[in-house]
């Protein structure tokens, strides 16, 4: 008779399903198909898709590549810690190190240009959270993730770490400058 007793009709699987229930199941099914199609549609026509380009790496290897990039492209240093500000060549590769507890170095980009930003961690897991744009990407040690980014607006952006990485986690703040077109 009720949900806490065995079905009163022993052949419950032969009972017809009400039209209204069928209609709701159909709505749910079609909606599921639409949501599935949306993800594929966005891969074809959308402009915000997370890159698939990932390489295995090691902290030493990634740090070496990043240091080379920094040495070649630094334009100035900032703050009393002399953090290098590195101008990423338009259309070129930029490296961003995540480590306890900083994003290194500061990157300088130009609006409307597309960059290949290499992300990896030298120690724990970190979270690349670009603010106030609000793009969030997981950063793992051992994986070099190449994300193609095209800034759409000039300004000063913050990179918040949003994967918990220990006691200094909340002070792990990085910076990206986006210059307007000259």
């Amino acid at each position: 008779m009720s949900a806490i007793l065995p079905p009163s009709d022993r052949l419950w699987w032969k009972q017809p399903i009400d039209k209204v229930e069928w209609a709701w199941i159909a709505i749910a099914f079609v909606w599921g198909m639409i949501m599935f199609a949306m993800m594929i549609y966005w891969h074809v026509f959308g402009k915000q898709n997370l890159s698939n380009e990932t390489y295995r790496t090691t902290p030493e290897l990634f740090a070496a590549k990043a240091e080379k990039f920094i040495a070649e492209n630094t334009i100035r240093t900032e703050t009393d810690q002399n953090i290098p500000v590195v101008k990423v060549p338009a259309g070129g590769d930029g490296y961003l190190i995540a480590r306890l507890w900083s994003w290194y170095p500061i990157l300088e980009l130009e609006k409307g240009q597309t960059y290949r930003i290499h992300l990896s961690s030298l120690d724990y897991q970190h979270g690349f959270s670009l603010q106030p744009v609000n793009i969030n990407i997981q950063v793992l040690p051992g994986y070099e993730h190449v994300v193609k980014m095209t800034p759409t607006k000039a300004g000063t952006y913050a990179i918040v770490c949003n994967e918990y990485c220990g006691i200094g986690h909340s002070s792990m703040l990085g910076r990206i400058y986006v210059k307007g077109n000259q």
Binding site: T79, Q81, N134, C161, S171
Partner: peptide, 22 residues
Amino acid sequence: TLGVSRRHWDMAFSGAPFQYEW
């Protein structure tokens, strides 16, 4: 939706080399 992180102790980022104002 406004970007605030989970598992984060300090929205003011004290001790960070930069500032970011939510």
